[in-house]
Design a protein around this nucleic acid. Structure first.
Lengths: 205, 205
DNA sequence: ATTTAGTTTAACGACTTTGTTAAACAACTT
DNA sequence: AAGTTGTTTAACAAAGTCGTTAAACTAAAT
């Protein structure tokens, strides 16, 4: 957004790391200062309060993937075409920040004033999204399946394996992070395939 | 587990509500006492400490759906047969407690000692699970797709829409909780269909 | 009528957290 | 040389949190 000094960046990096990991209430300003290797007073110097620092971190996290969602919902090009590139982007983002989904969803779930606020700021219009879908014939493509279910399926397949990383890693991949990562990359191919199958299969019935 | 007095139950109910909503650090003992309509001292009377109360809540939450997962992974009957009943159970559980997924995943993600501990206690053996799958011919059924990807798909489709409830509700269902609930119930049919398609489609290629 | 278990009230100590302030220091600019 | 900016140190008040304790109260059980 704005130019950032080196220190400001160190603060954000540490704040992200700790807020992602332990949440807002679970992270103290001292924790962040220590992790950033600076004095606690500096935190209040750059970000007036904990609230404001958290707000900065939260908005940055939202900014990493909400645009993808919005673009897909509001775009002109067809839903079907959109999927592969979108899945690739989302998964690449998540691989670098697997904790973002839980962090964001937890915050949205505990602070219910957040969603309406975001919808406004981001200019999301659910009505337009659904209308465009049907105009594009997506609902025909999906063989009558509610387009919202399609979206839920797509997001579920793309995001959940990261939200559930600790479980998946330890139970399915035996703690082998490399194997887990490989599997996540593989999903960039698997998911578009599934979505395509899913839609054409329905269409031909 | 054990007999519970009325008060003990009131405490657990309030603790669940608040821990689910705001996490461990975001919930004070006073908050819980107030919500339960009792005195804070009573909390320490029944559960020695905040840690122990949280532990009770967390274990109860895990107990709601881990058995489903374990049963599926270790069961004798075929994976394909297992899906419909399992999806039904999981979704019914989630409808009543949509916040559990985030709560549990957040805790597992911020407390990394938890997973190994749980794997031990619950008697989960990832090796056995995968072996059984292949013995049952699941890997043939899935046309060579890694059985772990199948499991990820199944869990993603079943659980994520609840973890993302605030987003889905406000963006896709315009805040209409009834509509959202209906959609979730619909998924009890949709998901098994998808999984079946997904597996047979792959098999026939 | 007395005991007992559950509960409340009040209070305490020890500790943490947040935000603020004042003073001093370092380094770089002008 | 003086000024500016970023930074540290030290200290503080206000508020909150947790666990504990002692004393008193209620109501049901013996």
């Amino acid at each position: 957004m704005v130019l950032q000094t080196e220190t400001e960046q160190k603060i954000i990096v540490s704040a992200e790391k700790l807020f992602y990991q332990n949440g807002k209430a679970g992270t103290s300003m001292q924790d962040i200062a220590d992790d950033a290797g600076i004095n606690r007073t500096l935190l209040n110097y750059y970000f007036r309060s904990k609230d404001q620092l958290f707000e900065a971190v939260f908005r940055k996290a939202m900014g990493r993937f909400v645009p993808n969602l919005v673009a897909m919902l509001h775009s002109d090009i067809s839903f079907e075409e959109y999927i592969p590139a979108m899945v690739e982007t989302v998964i690449d983002t998540m691989i670098e920040n697997p904790q973002i989904p839980i962090f964001v969803l937890q915050e949205l779930s505990s602070n219910r004033k957040r969603m309406p606020q975001i919808i406004k700021e981001m200019g999301i219009d659910p009505a337009i999204a659904l209308k465009k879908m049907e105009e594009e014939g997506v609902s025909k493509v999906t063989g009558g399946m509610d387009p919202r279910q399609i979206i839920l399926n797509l997001l579920s397949l793309s995001v959940f394996p990261f939200a559930a990383k600790p479980v998946a890693l330890d139970i399915l991949y035996n703690g082998d992070n490399e194997a887990y990562l490989e599997a996540m990359k593989e999903r960039k191919k698997i998911i578009p395939q599934l979505m395509k199958q899913l839609m054409s299969q329905n269409r031909s019935r």
